[in-house]
Simulated assay, not measured.
Amino acid sequence: MRIVVGSDHGGFELKEELKKRLMDQGHEVLDVGCHDKNMVDYPMIAVDLCKVLLAQGQDFGLLCCGTGIGISIAANKVKGIRAALCTDCYSARMAKEHNNANVIAFGGRTVGIEHAWAMVQAYMAAEFQHGIHEPRVKMIDEIQ
């Protein structure tokens, strides 16, 4: 898979570990920043990731900030993005199966690496189920 990742300083360590694990599995990972623990503004990272995701056709995006809240809100402001803040494996799977989320987000200060990794795996193993969900996703996209 082709995956684009990004974080602010609060999600940097989590992003780095998830990026490493994804690359170890053979996935192509593009990192839009940040690249160290220096303070950055998460809205800009979210927008950069979304632009790359939409322009270059990665399979999905992965964002991290301190809680995952702010960066997912910022990502959802970009037309064509459906970002889901995930807190458990069920929500990660449903983000894909029911909402066809193209970005998942985590809190670097709220979830541990093993839990975040399990959520990434759950999301990646899931497939959009179309059916009754497709019209709803279309409705979401039309709000923008």
Rank of each mutant, 00 (worst) to 15 (best):
R2G: 06
I3W: 13
I3S: 10
I3G: 12
V5P: 11
V5R: 09
D8E: 13
D8G: 14
D8L: 11
G10F: 07
G10N: 13
G10T: 11
G10H: 11
F12C: 03
L14D: 09
L14G: 09
L14P: 07
K15F: 12
E16F: 04
E17V: 13
E17G: 07
L18A: 13
K20W: 09
K20F: 11
K20L: 11
R21S: 10
R21M: 11
R21P: 10
L22W: 13
M23H: 04
D24T: 07
G26S: 11
G26Q: 09
H27F: 12
E28T: 15
E28P: 07
V32Y: 09
G33Y: 10
G33F: 10
C34K: 08
K37A: 10
N38W: 04
V40P: 02
M44Y: 12
M44F: 13
M44R: 12
V47S: 04
L49W: 00
C50T: 02
C50Q: 01
K51L: 02
V52L: 05
V52G: 01
L53P: 01
L53Y: 03
L54V: 06
L54T: 05
L54N: 12
Q56L: 00
Q56S: 01
Q56M: 01
G57Q: 06
D59T: 07
G61C: 04
G61H: 02
G61I: 05
L62A: 00
L63M: 04
L63I: 00
L63K: 02
L63S: 02
C64V: 01
G66P: 07
G68C: 06
G70Y: 02
G70M: 03
A74I: 04
A75Y: 06
K77C: 02
V78Y: 07
V78T: 06
K79S: 10
K79R: 14
G80S: 04
I81L: 08
A83E: 08
A83G: 13
A84C: 07
L85A: 05
L85H: 12
C86N: 05
T87W: 15
T87R: 12
T87D: 03
C89E: 15
Y90D: 14
A92T: 05
A92S: 11
R93Y: 14
K96G: 07
K96N: 09
K96A: 09
E97G: 06
E97Q: 13
N99E: 07
N100F: 03
N100V: 03
A101L: 05
V103A: 07
A105P: 03
A105H: 06
G108I: 04
G108W: 04
G108N: 11
R109A: 10
T110Q: 09
V111T: 14
G112K: 05
I113A: 11
I113Q: 03
H115R: 12
A116C: 03
A116H: 01
A116T: 00
Q121H: 07
A122W: 03
A122I: 04
Y123A: 10
F128V: 10
Q129E: 15
Q129C: 08
H130E: 15
H130G: 08
I132D: 06
I132G: 11
H133E: 07
H133C: 08
H133D: 06
R136D: 08
R136Q: 09
V137C: 12
K138L: 12
M139W: 11
I140Y: 15
I140A: 13
D141Y: 11
E142N: 15
Q144G: 14
